[in-house]
Design a protein around this nucleic acid. Structure first.
Lengths: 225, 225
DNA sequence: CTGGGCCTTTGATCTAGATCAAAGTGCAGA
DNA sequence: TCTGCACTTTGATCTAGATCAAAGGCCCAG
């Protein structure tokens, strides 16, 4: 059930893997004593948070099923990784994994490509944080979540750009605010505005239905208003 | 004169490298027709820009001497890379470099580490864009530039955290604004404020002298205001 | 099924930084 | 050395989103 990272290397990966279940809110690894392990997410969502002494927070990454959490070789990284939903992980000891990596170029290359993807995603988000309006930010997050939340292990490029039309937010309003560089009040108001515009509807605290995916994407891209 | 990327692989790298001089403002590669080449910066500064149809810009990365521009394997990346100063590059054809990479794990690993560094830097910047005040942003950029601008090829970890006390900004006010998610007027006002506070002084449009590096760093970290 | 805490929404007001508008001023070219 | 203009500074005003404040309402424990 674990992996699908690479082809032949997967066989050697399996023996050193172990499965873990993690409750909401638990910290996977924090600061640089993230010593422990590397992991692939089997199900659930992990947020990567950068925090400052004074309490300011910024979510700098969301990892979904099939994504990696933690980086081999990475020295520092002052990040906290925390489960935002119930989580199933497939964990590897860092040292065992790095050893394996050195012997399997395909594995190393797969990880390298993931790092490049993460970098691209981070830079996309930099544009959002620096230049988008609150409304565009909220719409963008919804598109991003809808596009990634239901993609199962394996379907990396296949279902590209396909939005889920109904899903549960993996984040609280507070976490959404910390992902978008906004306050929770502004997030709430922009959600309402999108509902009034008939773009989405909600039920309970977490459930979202996308009524007009094209419009949602248009708003997210800033091609409107 | 080119490289110092890795140890033994450097010998094979040299033959496929060629040197290029680039004037200010020239685009190195753009969108995904960045077909051309990968490059190591010998001297000068490159900005990585993400742009939207409506003209909004965000600088999502600055690359200095010894840094790589362009990523092997990278499929997409809707980025524009442009020289913000006069530039000397050491270029490699993408295909030749990738072939070489496949045969030299040390090279691949070196690139992987660079990608992880870029990722860490991008996430640091996400915090800045999402959660710092204008004053903190400007101070942070000055610290960042002062720390990197004079570090020559090779001195990666050695001079870590050491700020140059006098340097020329590699960016115009407009570029600074696009890096920080601000307007040029706000940048100007915050610069003045830092000058009035005796933290820095300026001469001409580009030259900056850091009068109080500790205070500058403290302001950047948000431990003060 | 029911009470209460906590997350969320909604409203009123404030403000950091944007926008609009005019002067300066460094600097490349004549 | 001088001149033109793009870049930058400075000032006045506006506004998107923050902050402050007060209900609601979801959801879990009992």
């Amino acid at each position: 059930m674990c992996s699908e990272v690479s082809e032949t290397a997967a066989r050697e990966l399996a023996p050193i893997a172990h499965h873990r279940r993690i409750p909401v809110g638990q910290v996977i690894h924090s600061e640089h004593q993230g010593l422990g392990s590397l992991a692939i997410i089997v199900s659930g969502v992990v947020k990567l948070v950068k925090a400052q002494r004074d309490g300011r927070l910024q979510i700098v990454g969301l990892q979904y099923a099939a994504d990696f959490v933690g980086h081999p070789y990475a020295a520092k990284s002052s990040l906290i990784a925390e489960a935002t939903t119930h989580l199933e992980l497939c964990c590897f000891s860092r040292s065992a994994f790095e050893t394996l990596m050195r012997n399997h170029p395909t594995l190393e290359q797969a990880l390298y490509r993931r790092a490049l993807n993460d970098l691209e995603t981070a830079r996309e988000w930099m544009f959002l944080l620096g230049r988008k309006t609150a409304r565009e930010k909220v719409a963008s997050l919804l598109v991003s979540i809808a596009t990634r939340i239901n993609r199962p292990l394996g379907g990396v490029g296949a279902t590209a750009g396909k939005m889920a039309l109904q899903f549960d937010l993996p984040l609280s309003r507070n976490e959404i605010a910390d992902a978008l560089g906004l306050t929770i009040e502004t997030v709430s108001r922009e959600m309402r505005s999108l509902k009034l515009a008939g773009v989405v509807s909600t039920a309970g605290r977490r459930s979202v239905t996308v009524l007009n995916p094209d419009l949602l994407r248009t708003i997210a891209e800033g091609d409107l208003d």
